[in-house]
Simulated scan of single mutants.
Amino acid sequence: MNELDHDKLLESIARLTEKRNRLSLEICLTQTMFDLLAVEEIALYRCEADQANLLVRVDHEGCQVPSDDLDDLETMIPVATDAGFLACVQEQQVVVEPTAQGNRHTFPIPRHDKLIGFLRLVASRDLREDHRLVEGFVQIYWNYLKLIEDNERDKLTGLLNRKTFDDKLLEILHASRRSAQAKLRREQPERREGDGGKHYWLAVLDIDHFKRINDTYGHLYGDEVLILMANIMRSSFRRADLLFRYGGEEFVVVFKTRALEDAHNVLERFRQNLERYHFPQVGQVTASVGFIQILDLEVAAELITRADKALYYAKEHGRNQVCSYEKLIANGALAVPDDHFGDIELF
């Protein structure tokens, strides 16, 4: 490696360690390695259950980040159906396969004894001498990803924290807008409820009478309630759903499903699971829930405001229930809002 290559390598590592969230780190990793190694294509996948989910792909046409459409089979590949992924899992080392563009190199990304992802490169030249360099970048990625993940988590419950919520919601809104614009350019109507389309929903969950729990049993038991609440959320929602501790006894869930009734059923299942659970010393704990659909043109701060309105309605009308903002507007229980926020994002 000559002096110019050394300089490029140091600059690449410096760019990686500047990143402060997972998506920017992943984009930087793939783009940097694409430029440094002069390959035809590079893609990063996250391994979840028995599936490889595409995070980012870089080729000569540019960088592509999936719009997170759960029905897009190109971005969600069962490991058992892909020979390279399957061999990588079984052998726990780089796998090389011939393709029309050249050799395809699939690198495992391990975390302790578990495989958390794959890095896949396609190159028309021989990459074998660069395998150690790629493995070094994979190790840097994993080490720095661990620091980012620790910073994204609430220390008490282990759920994602408020700062991460702000970032994730903006990412979702931007991705939804990009997806909607792409569909318009292709002159394909956006899928709606009833024809297989899935939408994001945002729910605010608030523990009922939490101050009374703290005052009666003390803050140690209050903290235990929060920890157990987080565990019940993990068991009630899917792995792909985003679970946050928003602050105090308030939590947020962002998830995808097709229709309003489906979203209500998902949240009602959680409410019932919580209601049935016996908390040590405290006994029964309940929560109120307000939720809203995330639309492409929404302002981020206004989404929380409207979900909160549905939550406050649930609190004021008996607690321990799930309320939809859209339904409350439709039946006149809440006033129709004045939309004077323009395109300004308030986070």
Rank of each mutant, 00 (worst) to 15 (best):
L156N: 12
T157V: 01
G158K: 11
G158M: 04
G158R: 06
G158H: 03
L159T: 06
L160A: 09
N161Q: 10
N161I: 06
R162Q: 14
R162T: 12
R162I: 03
K163Y: 09
T164L: 01
T164N: 13
T164Y: 00
F165I: 12
F165S: 02
D166F: 01
D166N: 07
D167G: 00
D167E: 09
K168A: 03
K168H: 05
K168Y: 09
K168S: 03
L169V: 12
L170T: 07
E171Y: 09
I172E: 05
I172D: 00
I172W: 05
H174S: 11
A175F: 00
A175K: 04
A175N: 09
A175M: 02
A175S: 10
A175T: 05
S176R: 04
S176H: 00
S179A: 07
S179F: 04
S179R: 15
A180K: 11
Q181F: 07
Q181M: 09
A182K: 15
A182N: 15
K183V: 00
K183R: 14
K183C: 05
L184S: 02
L184A: 08
L184Y: 10
L184G: 13
R185L: 15
R185N: 14
R186N: 14
R186Y: 10
E187C: 05
E187Y: 13
Q188C: 06
Q188A: 12
P189D: 05
E190Q: 11
E190H: 10
E190P: 05
R191A: 14
R192Q: 12
R192T: 09
G194V: 05
G194T: 04
G194P: 04
G194A: 01
D195F: 01
G197F: 03
G197N: 00
K198L: 04
K198F: 09
H199Q: 11
W201R: 06
L202A: 02
L202I: 07
A203T: 00
V204M: 15
V204D: 02
L205C: 14
I207V: 15
I207W: 05
D208F: 00
F210I: 12
F210Q: 07
F210K: 02
K211N: 04
R212I: 08
R212K: 11
R212C: 00
R212V: 07
I213K: 07
N214E: 04
N214Y: 14
D215A: 04
D215K: 12
D215H: 08
T216I: 04
Y217Q: 05
Y217V: 10
G218V: 08
H219C: 01
H219V: 03
H219F: 11
L220T: 13
Y221M: 03
G222R: 11
D223I: 00
D223C: 02
E224T: 03
V225S: 11
L226T: 05
L226G: 08
I227Q: 14
L228G: 01
L228C: 02
M229Q: 13
M229V: 00
A230W: 01
A230G: 09
A230K: 02
I232N: 06
I232C: 06
M233S: 07
M233E: 04
